[in-house]
């Protein structure tokens, strides 16, 4: 299988703190894997670097054979990378359906359509994404007034509306009930299995990590410490020491 994402020697520091250090990382098409690591390890920063939110100080990011290093977020999104944020980042004063619909419009390249009727463009796709994420019954609610778990689901819906080929999920189940977390991760599995969507997620719940990732990358202080199958990582001594030990797995 071809590498869909190839990261070489990525480096980033904020002031004197090096938050990403010489990271080499790659993903195969259709793979579903997780980045784990203690708080402040640099997991979110890594995603921010890959999606153009932060500038990389050094290194190279190649997506589907094309160099996207330090491209702007909107260019990277248009290439086919979507992301969902750790802290839900939605359009709080718009309705749930409008949130998703605008993401659909952006994906359809209709964002410049000035005289078309928004309510008649991308209706089916909007409905499909809402149904997929179990948000149909909440479509007319104001996004900012949703419960925490629903906000995270909307967060995912917005990301999916972009029809990505590579999806980054930063703690997709944070703030969700156990039931919500289970159904969300089942959805992610399904997208990965049925559509071949390549997924990279971060997660603190090791139950979820070991159930839903086929490959793990453990980050610690901006560096990749261990990489491998869940079994390999679980058996690794350093992994036990820096992270897994405290999670009793």
């Amino acid at each position: 299988m071809a590498a869909i994402l190839e990261v070489t020697n990525l480096h980033k520091h904020f002031g004197g703190i090096h938050v990403t250090r010489h990271v080499n990382f790659s993903m195969h098409e259709g793979e579903q894997s997780a980045i784990i690591g203690p708080n402040g390890a640099g997991k979110s920063t890594f995603m921010n670097l890959l999606t153009g939110y932060h500038r990389c100080d050094a290194g190279k990011v190649v997506f589907e054979g094309r160099d996207i290093t330090n491209r702007s977020p909107h260019e990277i999104a248009r290439r086919g990378i979507s992301r969902a944020f750790q802290v839900s980042s939605i359009f709080v004063k718009m309705s749930v359906a409008e949130n998703v619909r605008s993401a659909v419009h952006a994906q359809m390249r209709r964002s410049f359509s000035i005289l078309g009727a928004a309510s008649r463009i991308g209706v089916e796709e909007t409905g499909r994404v809402l149904a997929l994420c179990g948000l149909e019954s909440k479509r007319d609610l104001i996004a900012g007034e949703l419960a925490q778990g629903d906000k995270k689901r909307l967060e995912l819906a917005i990301a999916l509306a972009g029809k990505p080929r590579l999806l980054f999920l930063d703690e997709p189940t944070a703030g969700m009930s156990i039931e919500e977390a289970r159904s969300t991760m089942e959805l992610v599995d399904r997208l990965n299995r049925e559509l071949g969507l390549t997924v990279l997620f971060t997660e603190h719940d090791m139950g979820i990590v070991f159930n839903h990732a086929r490959r793990l990358t453990l980050m610690h202080r901006g560096e990749i410490v261990v990489q491998g199958t869940p079994e390999e990582v679980r058996a690794n001594e350093i992994a036990q020491k820096v992270y897994l030990g405290e999670h009793h797995v």
């Binding site: 248009r78 718009m94 000035i114």
Partner: peptide
């Protein structure tokens, strides 16, 4: 009431997120 009009609302609510949708 156009797609563009709703993109404006997304910019009002959350510019960063809009950028990650592919919006310039």
């Amino acid at each position: 009431e156009s797609p563009f009009g709703y993109i404006m609302r997304t910019l009002r609510d959350n510019q960063r997120r809009a950028a990650f949708l592919g919006i310039n």
